[in-house]
Amino acid sequence: MRNKILRLVGGRLIAGVGVLWGAATLTFLVLYFTPGDQAQAIVGGENAAPTPEVIAQVTAEYGLDQPWYAQYLSHLGRILHGDLGTSYRLHTPVTQAIGEQAGATLELALAAAVVGLTLSTVVALATAKRRRWIRGIASGSELVIASTPSFWLGILLLTVFSFGLRLFPATGSHGLQSLVLPALALALPIAGVLGHVLREALEEVLDEPFIVSARTRGLADLTVRLRHALRHALVPLITMTGYWVGALLGGAVITETLFTRQGIGRLLLSAVNAKDLPVVLGVVLLSAGIYVLLNLVVDLLYLVIDPRLRDAPATARPAVGGAS
C-alpha cells in the first residue's frame, strides 16, 4: 500500500518535471522568435529617449547579443538554481516580481475558490432531486451565470454595488471589503459550471440502492444528503480541479485588471504587452508548477475519498482535467 503511494508520487513527480522542462523550452523558443527589439523594450516608454551607450549597456547586460542556444542554456541553468532571470521592464529579479504579486493573487483565488465551491455545493445539495420548478430555477440560473463573461459580470457588480449602492470599494487590495466584488466576479461563472456538474452527480447518487436503504432506515433527508450522497458526488468535482484552478488563474488576469488589484494576472498582462520574456516565462512556469502539484494532490485525494481506487491499477485513474 505505502509502496504503491510512493511509486505513484514518484511517477507523478518525474512526469511533472518533464512537464516543467517542456514548458520552459516551449515558452523560451516561442518568445525568442518573437519579433521586436528587446533592448529598446527594456528602456522603453512613451517618453523614452535613450542614448546609444544606454542601448549597448542593456544589450550586454541582458546577453541579448548571445546566440539562441547560449541564451537557452543559460536560462535552463538559472531556472535550476531557482533564478528566473531579471525582468526587462522592472529591472528586478523575476522571482521577486512574482513574489510581490503572488500573495494578492493567492488571496483572490482562495476567496473565489471558497465562494465558488461553497455556493455550488450548497445550491446543488439544496436543489438536487427536488421539485421540477426548483431544479428548473437552479439549472436556469446556473446556465445564465456560467454563460456570463466574468469581465461583464465584474462591470455589473461594480456599477451596482460599488458605484451605485456604495456597499463595497471598487478598487485595490485593501482588506476583506475590497475582496468581496472581485472574488464574486471570479467565482460566480465557475460556480455555475461546478454547480451543474455537482447536481447531476448528486441526482445520480441519490438513486443508488444504498441511499434508498439508508432512507428506509429512517435517516433524515439532510443527513442522507450530507453524510452519504455528498461524498460520492464530490468525485467529479475533484476530477475537475484542473479546470477550475485553471479558470481561477486565467480569470485573475481579467479580474485584477478590472478591479485594479495587484497580482500576477496584471503582472503577466503588462509583461505580454512589453515582451518582458523573463516575467512571462516565470508566470508560465509557476502555472505549470501549480498544475503538477495539483495532479499529485488530486491523485492522493482519490485514494482518500474512494477507497475502491486503492486497489485499481494505476492507469485506470482519471488524470486532472483529462479524459483519458
Binding site: 512537464v19 517542456g22 514548458a23 516551449l26 515558452t27 516561442v30 518568445l31 518573437t34 484542473g242 485553471g246 479558470a247 488563474l249 486565467g250 480569470g251 488576469v253 481579467i254 503577466l268 498582462l269 505580454v272 515582451k275 512571462v280 508566470v283 508560465v284 502555472s287 505549470a288 498544475y291 503538477v292 482535467g321 483529462g322
Partner: peptide, 16 residues
C-alpha cells in the same frame, strides 16, 4: 504540457 497552462494564459503567449 499544453494542459498545464490555463486557456487564457496560453492564448496570451500565442498573442505575444
Amino acid at each position: 504540457i499544453g494542459l498545464a497552462f490555463p486557456e487564457l494564459l496560453l492564448a496570451l503567449v500565442v498573442i505575444t
